[in-house]
Design a protein around this nucleic acid. Structure first.
Lengths: 147, 147
DNA sequence: CGAGTTTAGTTTCCTAGTCAACATAACCAG
DNA sequence: CTGGTTATGTTGACTAGGAAACTAAACTCG
Protein backbone atom coordinates (compact mmCIF):
# COMPACT_ATOMS: atom_id res chain seq x y z
CA UNK A 1 0.00 0.00 0.00
CA UNK A 2 1.38 3.35 -1.12
CA UNK A 3 0.88 6.16 1.35
CA UNK A 4 2.24 9.68 1.38
CA UNK A 5 5.16 10.53 3.58
CA UNK A 6 5.03 13.19 6.28
CA UNK A 7 7.64 15.19 4.43
CA UNK A 8 5.53 15.26 1.28
CA UNK A 9 3.46 18.00 2.87
CA UNK A 10 4.18 21.67 2.87
CA UNK A 11 2.58 21.81 6.30
CA UNK A 12 5.30 19.54 7.62
CA UNK A 13 8.07 21.92 6.66
CA UNK A 14 6.07 24.89 7.73
CA UNK A 15 5.67 23.38 11.16
CA UNK A 16 9.32 22.42 11.32
CA UNK A 17 10.44 25.98 10.65
CA UNK A 18 7.73 27.56 12.78
CA UNK A 19 8.58 25.39 15.76
CA UNK A 20 12.27 26.09 15.42
CA UNK A 21 11.62 29.83 15.35
CA UNK A 22 9.32 29.66 18.35
CA UNK A 23 11.51 27.41 20.40
CA UNK A 24 14.54 29.54 19.76
CA UNK A 25 12.56 32.55 20.83
CA UNK A 26 11.32 30.73 23.91
CA UNK A 27 14.92 30.02 24.90
CA UNK A 28 15.83 33.66 24.45
CA UNK A 29 13.00 35.11 26.50
CA UNK A 30 13.54 32.47 29.15
CA UNK A 31 16.76 34.31 29.99
CA UNK A 32 14.46 37.15 31.09
CA UNK A 33 12.38 34.73 33.11
CA UNK A 34 9.43 34.94 30.77
CA UNK A 35 7.54 32.49 28.54
CA UNK A 36 6.31 33.20 25.04
CA UNK A 37 2.72 33.45 26.24
CA UNK A 38 3.84 35.90 28.89
CA UNK A 39 5.64 37.96 26.29
CA UNK A 40 2.47 38.17 24.18
CA UNK A 41 0.56 39.13 27.28
CA UNK A 42 3.02 41.88 28.17
CA UNK A 43 3.16 43.17 24.62
CA UNK A 44 -0.62 43.32 24.38
CA UNK A 45 -0.82 45.34 27.57
CA UNK A 46 2.04 47.62 26.61
CA UNK A 47 0.13 50.08 24.53
CA UNK A 48 -3.00 50.23 26.64
CA UNK A 49 -3.73 51.62 30.06
CA UNK A 50 -5.15 48.24 30.92
CA UNK A 51 -7.30 45.55 29.37
CA UNK A 52 -10.11 43.29 30.55
CA UNK A 53 -9.15 39.62 30.79
CA UNK A 54 -11.85 38.51 28.37
CA UNK A 55 -10.66 40.92 25.71
CA UNK A 56 -7.12 39.74 26.23
CA UNK A 57 -8.29 36.17 25.85
CA UNK A 58 -9.79 37.06 22.47
CA UNK A 59 -6.70 38.91 21.35
CA UNK A 60 -4.38 36.13 22.40
CA UNK A 61 -6.55 33.27 21.21
CA UNK A 62 -6.63 31.67 24.63
CA UNK A 63 -9.47 30.72 26.93
CA UNK A 64 -10.48 32.92 29.82
CA UNK A 65 -9.31 30.17 32.13
CA UNK A 66 -5.84 30.28 30.67
CA UNK A 67 -5.72 34.06 30.99
CA UNK A 68 -6.83 33.81 34.57
CA UNK A 69 -3.94 31.51 35.42
CA UNK A 70 -1.47 33.40 33.28
CA UNK A 71 -2.40 36.59 35.09
CA UNK A 72 -1.85 34.84 38.43
CA UNK A 73 1.63 33.78 37.40
CA UNK A 74 2.53 37.20 36.11
CA UNK A 75 1.24 38.89 39.22
CA UNK A 76 3.41 36.56 41.23
CA UNK A 77 6.35 37.77 39.14
CA UNK A 78 5.33 41.34 39.73
CA UNK A 79 4.87 42.10 36.04
CA UNK A 80 1.15 42.69 36.02
CA UNK A 81 -1.47 44.08 38.38
CA UNK A 82 -5.15 43.35 38.64
CA UNK A 83 -7.15 46.51 39.05
CA UNK A 84 -10.62 46.10 40.44
CA UNK A 85 -12.84 48.15 38.23
CA UNK A 86 -16.60 48.68 38.41
CA UNK A 87 -18.14 45.72 40.22
CA UNK A 88 -17.19 42.32 38.91
CA UNK A 89 -15.08 43.43 35.98
CA UNK A 90 -11.36 43.84 36.37
CA UNK A 91 -8.57 45.41 34.42
CA UNK A 92 -5.14 43.94 33.88
CA UNK A 93 -2.33 46.42 33.56
CA UNK A 94 1.45 46.37 33.48
CA UNK A 95 3.40 47.25 36.54
CA UNK A 96 6.40 49.54 36.00
CA UNK A 97 8.57 46.43 36.18
CA UNK A 98 6.48 44.71 33.57
CA UNK A 99 6.51 47.74 31.34
CA UNK A 100 10.24 48.08 31.63
CA UNK A 101 10.74 44.54 30.35
CA UNK A 102 8.86 45.04 27.11
CA UNK A 103 11.51 46.86 25.06
CA UNK A 104 14.10 44.25 25.98
CA UNK A 105 11.81 41.44 24.99
CA UNK A 106 10.78 43.22 21.80
CA UNK A 107 14.42 43.53 20.86
CA UNK A 108 14.77 39.80 21.38
CA UNK A 109 11.81 39.20 19.11
CA UNK A 110 13.36 41.39 16.43
CA UNK A 111 16.65 39.63 16.79
CA UNK A 112 15.05 36.20 16.64
CA UNK A 113 13.11 37.02 13.51
CA UNK A 114 16.20 38.48 11.90
CA UNK A 115 18.26 35.41 12.75
CA UNK A 116 15.93 33.29 10.67
CA UNK A 117 14.66 35.51 7.94
CA UNK A 118 17.36 38.05 7.20
CA UNK A 119 19.34 35.26 5.63
CA UNK A 120 16.77 35.10 2.84
CA UNK A 121 17.23 37.21 -0.25
CA UNK A 122 15.11 40.33 -0.34
CA UNK A 123 12.88 38.75 -2.94
CA UNK A 124 12.41 35.57 -0.98
CA UNK A 125 11.69 37.45 2.19
CA UNK A 126 9.07 39.53 0.44
CA UNK A 127 7.61 36.46 -1.24
CA UNK A 128 7.36 34.59 2.04
CA UNK A 129 5.61 37.47 3.75
CA UNK A 130 3.25 37.88 0.84
CA UNK A 131 2.43 34.17 0.61
CA UNK A 132 1.78 33.93 4.33
CA UNK A 133 -0.55 36.90 4.07
CA UNK A 134 -2.34 35.20 1.21
CA UNK A 135 -2.83 32.07 3.27
CA UNK A 136 -4.06 34.06 6.24
CA UNK A 137 -6.58 35.86 4.06
CA UNK A 138 -7.64 32.76 2.14
CA UNK A 139 -8.53 30.98 5.32
CA UNK A 140 -9.73 34.04 7.17
CA UNK A 141 -7.32 33.41 10.01
CA UNK A 142 -7.60 35.78 12.89
CA UNK A 143 -6.58 33.58 15.78
CA UNK A 144 -3.17 34.54 17.07
CA UNK A 145 -0.18 32.28 16.93
CA UNK A 146 -0.26 30.54 20.26
CA UNK A 147 -1.20 26.89 20.47
CA UNK B 1 9.12 54.13 24.05
CA UNK B 2 8.85 52.63 20.56
CA UNK B 3 8.74 48.84 20.44
CA UNK B 4 8.03 46.48 17.59
CA UNK B 5 4.65 44.86 17.29
CA UNK B 6 4.11 41.10 17.29
CA UNK B 7 2.77 41.26 13.76
CA UNK B 8 5.94 42.95 12.53
CA UNK B 9 7.61 39.57 12.54
CA UNK B 10 7.53 36.97 9.83
CA UNK B 11 7.65 34.37 12.57
CA UNK B 12 4.33 35.60 13.87
CA UNK B 13 2.56 34.92 10.58
CA UNK B 14 4.41 31.70 10.08
CA UNK B 15 3.19 30.48 13.41
CA UNK B 16 -0.33 31.66 12.72
CA UNK B 17 -0.52 29.66 9.51
CA UNK B 18 1.34 26.68 10.89
CA UNK B 19 -0.95 26.43 13.89
CA UNK B 20 -4.04 26.72 11.76
CA UNK B 21 -2.83 23.92 9.50
CA UNK B 22 -1.95 21.71 12.44
CA UNK B 23 -5.11 22.35 14.37
CA UNK B 24 -7.26 21.67 11.35
CA UNK B 25 -5.39 18.45 10.84
CA UNK B 26 -5.79 17.55 14.49
CA UNK B 27 -9.54 17.98 14.15
CA UNK B 28 -9.60 15.75 11.10
CA UNK B 29 -7.62 12.88 12.56
CA UNK B 30 -9.58 13.14 15.78
CA UNK B 31 -12.51 11.73 13.83
CA UNK B 32 -10.41 8.58 13.57
CA UNK B 33 -9.72 8.67 17.27
CA UNK B 34 -6.09 9.61 16.81
CA UNK B 35 -3.93 12.58 17.76
CA UNK B 36 -1.30 14.19 15.56
CA UNK B 37 1.49 12.66 17.60
CA UNK B 38 -0.14 9.27 17.23
CA UNK B 39 -0.40 9.78 13.49
CA UNK B 40 3.32 10.53 13.27
CA UNK B 41 4.00 7.48 15.37
CA UNK B 42 1.87 5.25 13.13
CA UNK B 43 3.38 6.68 9.98
CA UNK B 44 6.90 6.16 11.25
CA UNK B 45 6.16 2.54 12.01
CA UNK B 46 4.33 1.92 8.75
CA UNK B 47 7.29 1.21 6.55
CA UNK B 48 9.30 -0.79 9.05
CA UNK B 49 8.87 -4.18 10.60
CA UNK B 50 9.26 -2.52 13.96
CA UNK B 51 11.35 0.15 15.61
CA UNK B 52 13.04 0.60 18.97
CA UNK B 53 11.45 3.27 21.19
CA UNK B 54 14.66 5.27 21.48
CA UNK B 55 15.05 5.45 17.72
CA UNK B 56 11.45 6.53 17.40
CA UNK B 57 12.05 9.22 20.00
CA UNK B 58 14.89 10.58 17.87
CA UNK B 59 12.87 10.44 14.69
CA UNK B 60 9.89 12.15 16.25
CA UNK B 61 11.83 14.68 18.26
CA UNK B 62 10.30 13.56 21.52
CA UNK B 63 11.78 12.27 24.74
CA UNK B 64 11.92 8.60 25.53
CA UNK B 65 9.47 9.24 28.32
CA UNK B 66 6.94 10.68 25.93
CA UNK B 67 7.33 7.72 23.58
CA UNK B 68 6.89 5.34 26.47
CA UNK B 69 3.58 6.91 27.39
CA UNK B 70 2.50 7.37 23.80
CA UNK B 71 3.16 3.68 23.19
CA UNK B 72 1.05 2.82 26.25
CA UNK B 73 -1.86 4.82 24.90
CA UNK B 74 -1.60 3.32 21.46
CA UNK B 75 -1.38 -0.19 22.82
CA UNK B 76 -4.52 0.53 24.78
CA UNK B 77 -6.14 1.51 21.50
CA UNK B 78 -4.86 -1.69 19.91
CA UNK B 79 -2.86 0.14 17.26
CA UNK B 80 0.61 -0.86 18.34
CA UNK B 81 2.28 -3.84 19.96
CA UNK B 82 5.39 -4.07 22.09
CA UNK B 83 7.56 -6.95 21.05
CA UNK B 84 10.08 -8.13 23.58
CA UNK B 85 13.30 -8.50 21.72
CA UNK B 86 16.71 -9.57 23.01
CA UNK B 87 16.87 -8.81 26.72
CA UNK B 88 16.27 -5.22 27.62
CA UNK B 89 15.48 -3.82 24.19
CA UNK B 90 11.99 -3.86 22.78
CA UNK B 91 10.48 -3.29 19.39
CA UNK B 92 7.35 -1.33 18.66
CA UNK B 93 5.34 -2.48 15.69
CA UNK B 94 1.95 -1.81 14.18
CA UNK B 95 -0.89 -4.19 14.75
CA UNK B 96 -2.99 -5.03 11.70
CA UNK B 97 -5.55 -2.53 13.00
CA UNK B 98 -2.91 0.14 13.31
CA UNK B 99 -1.54 -0.60 9.89
CA UNK B 100 -4.99 -0.45 8.37
CA UNK B 101 -5.53 3.04 9.69
CA UNK B 102 -2.47 4.56 8.05
CA UNK B 103 -3.77 4.98 4.49
CA UNK B 104 -6.90 6.68 5.76
CA UNK B 105 -4.89 9.06 7.90
CA UNK B 106 -2.42 9.70 5.11
CA UNK B 107 -5.31 10.66 2.86
CA UNK B 108 -6.43 13.10 5.52
CA UNK B 109 -2.96 14.59 5.64
CA UNK B 110 -2.96 15.00 1.87
CA UNK B 111 -6.35 16.57 1.97
CA UNK B 112 -5.41 18.93 4.76
CA UNK B 113 -2.30 20.09 3.00
CA UNK B 114 -4.23 20.58 -0.23
CA UNK B 115 -6.92 22.60 1.54
CA UNK B 116 -4.33 25.15 2.53
CA UNK B 117 -1.75 25.13 -0.18
CA UNK B 118 -3.50 24.17 -3.39
CA UNK B 119 -5.12 27.58 -3.32
CA UNK B 120 -1.74 29.14 -4.01
CA UNK B 121 -0.61 29.71 -7.56
CA UNK B 122 1.84 27.14 -8.84
CA UNK B 123 4.62 29.68 -8.58
CA UNK B 124 3.79 30.63 -5.03
CA UNK B 125 3.50 27.03 -3.97
CA UNK B 126 6.89 26.28 -5.43
CA UNK B 127 8.38 29.40 -3.91
CA UNK B 128 7.01 28.55 -0.47
CA UNK B 129 8.38 25.03 -0.59
CA UNK B 130 11.72 26.30 -1.79
CA UNK B 131 11.97 29.02 0.83
CA UNK B 132 11.06 26.64 3.62
CA UNK B 133 13.74 24.26 2.42
CA UNK B 134 16.21 27.12 2.41
CA UNK B 135 15.36 27.97 5.99
CA UNK B 136 15.62 24.36 7.06
CA UNK B 137 19.04 24.07 5.47
CA UNK B 138 20.27 27.45 6.70
CA UNK B 139 19.54 26.51 10.26
CA UNK B 140 20.39 22.86 9.90
CA UNK B 141 16.99 21.81 11.18
CA UNK B 142 16.48 18.13 11.59
CA UNK B 143 14.09 18.00 14.49
CA UNK B 144 10.63 16.99 13.37
CA UNK B 145 7.62 19.22 13.55
CA UNK B 146 6.15 18.29 16.90
CA UNK B 147 6.33 20.72 19.76
C1' DC C 1 -38.82 46.08 41.46
C1' DG C 2 -37.71 41.24 40.58
C1' DA C 3 -37.04 36.91 37.93
C1' DG C 4 -34.65 35.03 34.34
C1' DT C 5 -30.74 35.41 31.36
C1' DT C 6 -26.32 36.79 29.96
C1' DT C 7 -21.56 37.76 30.98
C1' DA C 8 -17.05 37.67 33.70
C1' DG C 9 -13.80 35.41 36.02
C1' DT C 10 -12.32 31.22 38.61
C1' DT C 11 -11.79 26.51 39.45
C1' DT C 12 -11.47 21.62 38.71
C1' DC C 13 -10.36 17.93 35.98
C1' DC C 14 -8.01 16.26 32.09
C1' DT C 15 -4.37 15.83 28.43
C1' DA C 16 0.16 15.63 26.63
C1' DG C 17 4.36 16.88 26.95
C1' DT C 18 9.26 17.72 29.58
C1' DC C 19 12.81 16.63 32.91
C1' DA C 20 15.16 14.04 36.05
C1' DA C 21 15.56 10.03 38.95
C1' DC C 22 15.44 5.37 38.71
C1' DA C 23 16.08 0.13 37.80
C1' DT C 24 18.05 -2.90 35.09
C1' DA C 25 20.31 -4.80 31.17
C1' DA C 26 24.36 -4.64 28.08
C1' DC C 27 28.99 -3.74 27.29
C1' DC C 28 33.79 -3.59 28.27
C1' DA C 29 38.27 -3.78 30.97
C1' DG C 30 41.16 -5.90 33.93
C1' DC D 1 34.18 -13.48 35.65
C1' DT D 2 33.46 -9.32 37.74
C1' DG D 3 33.06 -4.39 38.57
C1' DG D 4 32.25 0.12 36.49
C1' DT D 5 30.11 2.51 32.84
C1' DT D 6 26.78 3.25 29.47
C1' DA D 7 22.27 2.70 27.42
C1' DT D 8 17.26 1.51 27.66
C1' DG D 9 12.82 2.04 29.11
C1' DT D 10 9.67 3.55 32.99
C1' DT D 11 8.04 6.49 36.44
C1' DG D 12 6.82 10.58 39.14
C1' DA D 13 6.71 15.46 39.69
C1' DC D 14 5.73 19.40 37.18
C1' DT D 15 4.02 22.65 33.45
C1' DA D 16 0.80 24.93 30.41
C1' DG D 17 -3.14 24.79 28.30
C1' DG D 18 -8.42 23.39 27.13
C1' DA D 19 -13.27 22.21 28.46
C1' DA D 20 -16.80 22.70 31.23
C1' DA D 21 -18.91 23.46 35.71
C1' DC D 22 -19.43 26.93 38.85
C1' DT D 23 -20.10 31.66 41.21
C1' DA D 24 -21.52 35.96 41.17
C1' DA D 25 -22.49 40.22 39.04
C1' DA D 26 -24.90 42.78 35.47
C1' DC D 27 -28.43 43.42 32.37
C1' DT D 28 -33.44 43.09 30.59
C1' DC D 29 -38.00 43.39 30.37
C1' DG D 30 -42.67 42.44 32.20
Amino acid sequence: MRVSNLSDHTGYWLRMVSNAVSQDFARKVATEGVTVAEWCFLRALFDTEGTAPTLLADQMGMTRGAISKLADRMMAKGLVARIESSGRGQILALTPTGRAKVPTLAAMADENDAAYFDALSGDDRAALDRILQTLVENRGLTAPPLD
